[in-house]
């Protein structure tokens, strides 16, 4: 058991270090990318009509006249201490407005994931058990359809039927801090359904094919020859060996739920991080864009590192080496 702990702890440490390194590289990229954008906050805020003198003065006030490397250093030092800087448009600390919005995004993503992940894996396994039968074909066709339809289209269809025609749910998913938990669930139900439809299909198909690809292994034939039912063979012998690809596709979709919900947030006017970022981009509020991008990157890195660690933890060959 000591060995198990050692391998896992070493792995976790390694992943955390790598994650930090990745984030550092990402921060450089984000800063460089926002720096080469045409125009800066000063021209954006002051508008086309501003005289060069006012723009220059405003730039100096914001510190935009200093060399990029110095500004990067300042920014990074702030980020490390949890300070993402000040918004150019609202003059408020970015961290204050980002955190509640990030929580909103996590709530939406978590709600969707809680339903989508078990649903996708369950249906994927059922499809694999009944390979070639009706259940499998229906699952295949429906999931292929769901993948092919763009997410905003799904969102508008949901609004049309459930909000406009049937009037069951609100069209806008407006939430505010004082709102109760069940009210929140109620107003976010349409965006959550839209998200579930998008990510479930992908995970379902991956689960099915990961399980089926293991079925050609000799130990699967051995399990059949030991007199096991197909269901038992798949659950006990195929699934544990198909876990690694399933975990990585789940991680990819979880990250997508958090990072890729921008479109859904905009359609339902949900006050999440994605909508906030889109807003900031249109206002040229570059510090906010940088902060949001970094937060998204951190989420992505964390989810993937978690998936890697989990894959090792459930694989006896990696967990327990021969020595």
């Amino acid at each position: 058991m000591r060995l198990f702990k050692n391998v896992i702890t070493r792995m976790i440490l390694e992943r955390v270090m790598l994650g930090i390194l990745t984030l550092f590289a990402v921060s450089v990229l984000i800063f460089a990318a926002t720096s080469i954008l045409p125009g800066d906050a000063a021209t954006a805020v002051l508008g086309q009509g501003a005289t060069p003198e006012t723009v220059k003065a405003y730039r100096e006030e914001l510190g935009l006249d200093r060399p990029a490397i110095v500004r990067y250093g300042d920014w990074l030092a702030g980020v490390v201490q949890g300070d993402l800087g000040t918004s150019l448009t609202t003059r408020q600390p970015i961290s204050d407005s980002v955190i509640p919005r990030f929580e909103n995004t996590l709530f939406l993503a978590g709600f969707a994931a809680l339903i989508a992940v078990p649903l996708a894996i369950g249906l994927g396994i059922i499809a694999a058990i009944n390979e070639g039968r009706l259940v499998d074909r229906v699952a295949n066709i429906v999931s292929l359809g769901a993948i092919s339809v763009p997410e905003f289209f799904v969102a508008y269809l949901l609004i049309l039927f459930f909000a406009v025609k049937l009037g069951l749910f609100p069209t806008l998913a407006t939430v505010f801090p004082e709102m109760g938990f069940f009210d929140r669930l109620y107003v976010t139900i349409l965006p959550v359904i839209a998200l579930i439809m998008i990510v479930t299909a992908h995970m379902l198909r991956m689960t099915r094919s990961a399980v089926l690809s293991v079925l050609s292994q000799p130990y699967i034939e051995m399990a059949f020859l030991k007199g096991l039912r197909r269901r038992s063979v798949i659950m006990q012998h195929a699934l544990p060996n198909a876990a690694a690809p399933i975990i990585s596709v789940v991680a990819l979709n979880l990250a997508y739920l958090i990072v890729g919900v921008v479109v859904i947030e905009v359609v339902f006017v949900y006050p999440g991080l994605g909508q906030y970022m889109v807003d900031a981009v249109s206002k040229r509020d570059l510090p906010v864009v940088q902060g949001c991008a970094l937060l998204f990157a951190a989420t992505f890195v964390a989810v993937n590192a978690l998936a890697d660690i989990l894959s090792v933890a459930i694989n006896p060959r990696l967990r327990r080496s021969r020595h």
Binding site: K226, G227, Q236, H237, P240, N241, P316
Partner: peptide, 24 residues
């Protein structure tokens, strides 16, 4: 047929390393 497999008749395959499930 399944009831008899493993109990009345059992199979020994060519490769032991391939016939054991690595996860258990």
């Amino acid at each position: 047929r399944r009831d008899l497999r493993g109990t009345r008749i059992a199979y020994v395959a060519q490769s032991a390393s391939a016939s054991f499930n690595p996860a258990h």
